[in-house]
Nucleic acid binder design. Structure first.
Lengths: 145, 145
DNA sequence: CTTGACCTTCCAATGGTGGGAAGCCCCACC
DNA sequence: GGTGGGGCTTCCCACCATTGGAAGGTCAAG
């Protein structure tokens, strides 16, 4: 099966399949005489596993661990559970941060007249100079939030 | 004032101050004879505005709009409100997606014995082959989630 | 005058994904 | 036997925000 077909069946784009192979998340696919990658149904199954894990927000490093456990017939379910639980914590932390942002903004928006006048509590809050305890903190990267 | 001092007072790292200047978010700083950037309290104020907006999850493009409105004395608060409201919607959407992930995982974790045995509903779900309607959908980028 | 803290510019990496170019391969159709 | 179009290959670049580091100039205190 060509990479395009594997992509269709797994829901993982051909681009990403090659990428996952390049970073070692999946083993190098077999090749036909033409040089084309050749995929078996088992490979599609694995790709679908990856796709589903991505949909659940796991990052590649975690998916790697999960894949290893998946393949390991002598695995202990507690290992899987630990990874998942840790991930849930991370998700909840991100949610909490986003919710705090949204709530703060909601309050400000509710206080804003939203008319033709220039006075705006949102801008007032943003430009408020009265914030002393503000260090050049290693602010979290956007994609980690 | 040197960039280090401006960084300390604003909470924006020197690296990012230079970056914001490079991408045109802030105007080029004045220079001393030595070539060092020179910052006035007003610049620190602007940087603090940016810092606060980032903390609320605004992306640079939005911060640019907000800065322009901030500087525009004839602005209409409705413009600010609209930007903020749109941003809240985006935040809520991200929260909803993360919550769905967390809830799905929570269910799976609750069903997992978490002991020495290999049987695990989490892996079973991930590897479930019974998912036909799975297209190579243009999955959202990580930092947009 | 040296030392160390600060500043400068430039380049690279992060993570996950998409876009595109240049060139090869394969199949169906005429 | 050609030819056209679609799929495949590799390689490089972009996104977003941020950090790290190297190589070198500047400043203040000792």
């Amino acid at each position: 099966m060509n990479i395009g077909e594997a992509a269709k069946q797994s829901g993982v784009s051909a681009k990403m399949i090659r990428h996952y192979e390049a970073i070692g998340l999946i083993p190098p696919a077999g090749r036909k005489d033409s040089g084309y990658r050749d995929y078996a149904p088992a490979d599609v199954h694995m790709l679908r596993f990856i796709r589903r894990a991505r949909d659940l927000g796991f990052v590649v490093a975690e998916i790697n661990e999960l894949l290893n456990l998946w393949r390991d017939r002598s695995r202990q379910s507690t290992d899987v559970k630990r990874i998942a639980a840790t991930h849930i914590e991370a998700l909840r932390a991100r949610i909490a941060r986003l919710e705090q942002m949204a709530n703060t903004l909601e309050t400000l928006v509710d206080c804003c007249a939203g008319d033709h006048r220039p006075d705006c509590p949102i801008l007032a809050d943003l430009g408020d100079v009265a914030e002393p305890a503000l260090k050049p903190v290693p602010s979290t990267r956007a994609f980690e939030i």
